[in-house]
Design a protein around this nucleic acid. Sequence first.
DNA 1: GGCTCATGTGTGAACGTTAACAAACCGGGG
DNA 2: CCCCGGTTTGTTAACGTTCACACATGAGCC
Lengths: 336, 336
Amino acid sequence: MPVMADVARIAGVSHQTVSRVLNHHPNVRPATRDRVLAAIEELGYRRNLSARALVTRRTNTLGVVAFDTTLYGPASTLFGLEQAARDAGYFISIVSLKTINRKTVGEALDYLAAQAVDGLIAIAPQVEAAAAVSALRGNVPVVAVEGGEADGMPVVAVDQVRGAELATRHLLDLGHRTVWHVAGPADWLEAEGRRRGWRNVLAEARIDAPPVVEGDWSPRAGYTAGRRIADEARAGRASAVFVANDQMALGLLRALDEAGVRVPQDVSIVGFDDIPEAEFLTPPLTTVRQDFAEVGRKSIALLLDLIEAGPQAEPGRVVVPPAFVIRASTAPPRAT
Amino acid sequence: MPVMADVARIAGVSHQTVSRVLNHHPNVRPATRDRVLAAIEELGYRRNLSARALVTRRTNTLGVVAFDTTLYGPASTLFGLEQAARDAGYFISIVSLKTINRKTVGEALDYLAAQAVDGLIAIAPQVEAAAAVSALRGNVPVVAVEGGEADGMPVVAVDQVRGAELATRHLLDLGHRTVWHVAGPADWLEAEGRRRGWRNVLAEARIDAPPVVEGDWSPRAGYTAGRRIADEARAGRASAVFVANDQMALGLLRALDEAGVRVPQDVSIVGFDDIPEAEFLTPPLTTVRQDFAEVGRKSIALLLDLIEAGPQAEPGRVVVPPAFVIRASTAPPRAT
DNA sequence: GGCTCATGTGTGAACGTTAACAAACCGGGG
DNA sequence: CCCCGGTTTGTTAACGTTCACACATGAGCC
C-alpha cells in the first residue's frame, strides 16, 4: 500500500504538500495540486485514517445506541441516520441493545468510547434509557432521538402528542361519543406522548376518558387488547379506538374479526407509524405517519452542529411533524 | 486523557510492560500485572485504537454492505451480525444501499475500504449484487449472506429451496391438486430458491406447475397477485398458494378478503419469513421461519475464520435450516 | 534596491501504540 | 563459582499522518 511519501516522491513535492492537497488547504499552486492529484491517481493512494485519527484526535465516527432495531421504526431511523452520516463524511458505529438498563447502556457507551467516537446518537425511547445515556456519557456530544427533555440533552423527535391529537380528534369529528386508547408501555416516551395527546383532546371535548388499555407494542398485546375492546363494543361502550402503534392495531384487528366485530362499521380504529403493511390490512388502516428518515437526517445535522460548536451550544429540541393518513378503518358510528 | 506512559509511570514499569499486560502477553509476572491493572483502573486509562491500528495494520472493524435494512429480514440479519461481531471484539461499519448496481456497490466498498476494514459481509440477495461485490472487493476477505455461489465467495444462507419444499409439500399433503406460487423478483437469489423448491415438489408429484405470479416482496404486489388468485379460485383452478414472503401474503389475504374468497376454506396460503405479524393476521399465517440471528452469527464466525486463516481457506457454503410453522391459513381443500 | 508581506513549500517533531531487540535477573548444573 | 537457558523487563524504532515552524520566492511599495 502506497503512503503519502510515495505520492510525494512521484509528484516531486514533500509529503506535507500532499497532505495540504488532501485537506484542501488553500495555499497550494494549482499546477502543484494537479501533479499531486495525478500521483495519487497513479498509485491508487488512500490515506490511512488511523494515522490521521491519531494526530487529529478525531475519528470521524459517530456512535449510535439503539434498541430493538428489528422494529420498523428504529430500523427506519437507523437507515436515515446512516444515510445522513455518510453524506456528511462520517462513519457510524452501532450498538443494538436487547434490553435497556443502566448496565447494558453503560456497556454500550464503553464500547463506543473505546472507539473514540466524535459524537453519540442515542435512540432512547424509554425514560430510563435517556437518563442512563445522559448520566454515563463522558464529554462527547450527544443527541437523543425520541428522547425526553432529560438533563439538557438536545432531542430530535416526532411530535407524538400532536399525532395522537390528530388521531383522536379525527375519531371525535366522525361523531364517536368517546375514544378508547390502547397504549404502549408506560416507560416509553412515545407511549407517554401519544397517551397525553389522546387525553388532551378528550379533556378539551369534556369527555371522560375510558380506562387505558395497556400494551407493549407487540401484535400479541394488540390481540389481547382487542378481546377486551370487543367486549366493550358489544356492550355498546366502545365504537372508536386509538391504538398506539400499527403492530398492535394489527393484532387488535385480528381479535375483533374473531369476535365478529366489524371494522369500521362497529368499531373505528386508528394506528400509529404507518408501517408498509398498514395499507393492506383488512381493512386498510387509518394511521399517523412518522417520517423516520427525516428524524435521522435532523439528528445527524444537530449532532454535527454540536461537534462543531463545542459544548456551549444550547440544548434545543427539534420536532418533526407527523402526517395523518386516512384509510378505511375509520367511519362514523353506526347509531349516531 | 491518560496514555500508556502515564500508566507505566504510576505502576513503576515501562510502557512496553503495560502493552504486554493489555495484550495478554504470557511473560509478565503476576505481581507486575496486578500493579499495571491497578494503575489502569486508577487512571481510567483506555488504549487508543487509532495508534494501535496504525502499527498493527488491523482496524478490528468489519464492513457490512446491506440492502433495504428497513425490511424485517435484513434488519434481523443485521442485528444478529452486530451482536456476533461485538461478542467477538469487532466493530461493525454498515452501508445500506437504496439501489443495487455496480456503481452503488462500488461506492459502498470504497467507503469501507477507506476505513480499512479487516473483512467484509455482503448481504447480497440479488444476483447482480453478489457479482458486483465479488468483482470489486480488493483482497479483503468477504462472506456473502444469502448470496449465490458466485465466484468462490463463501456463503452463509438459509436453505430457501428446502423451505419452499416444506411449504409446497405441506399443501399437497393436505390434498390440494396443485399449488400456485407468488414469487419474488426474478433477480433475487432467495426468490429463485423458493421458486425452485416449489417447482421441485410439483415435478416430483408429477403435477404441472401453474404459471408463476410475479411479485416484488411488497404488500402491494401481494394484493395485486391476490386479485388474480381470487379469479382463479372462483374458477376452481386454485385452492392453494405458496407466497414467497409474508408481506406479500398479507396483501394477498387482503385481496382475497375483498373478493369474498375465504382463507383457508376456499384457498390455503403459506408464506415465508415468519414476521412478527404473521401469527396475528386474519387468519394466522402458516409460514416458513428463517433464523436470521443464526445467519448473522454464522457469517461472522466464517468471516473471522477467513481473516485468521488467510486467503488459502476454501470457500464453503454454510446452510441454516428453515423451520416450518403451521397456523390457520392452510386446510384441506373443500371438495376433496 | 531594499523592505515588507503574502504566498507557496519543506523540515522536523509530535500523536500513542506495538515490534524487535537488548539487557537484567534468576535458578540450576557442572 | 561460573556459565547457560529461560523468564521478565526496558530501550529504541517504527507505523503514516498533521501541526508548528522555518524558509524560499515574488510582488508591491517607498
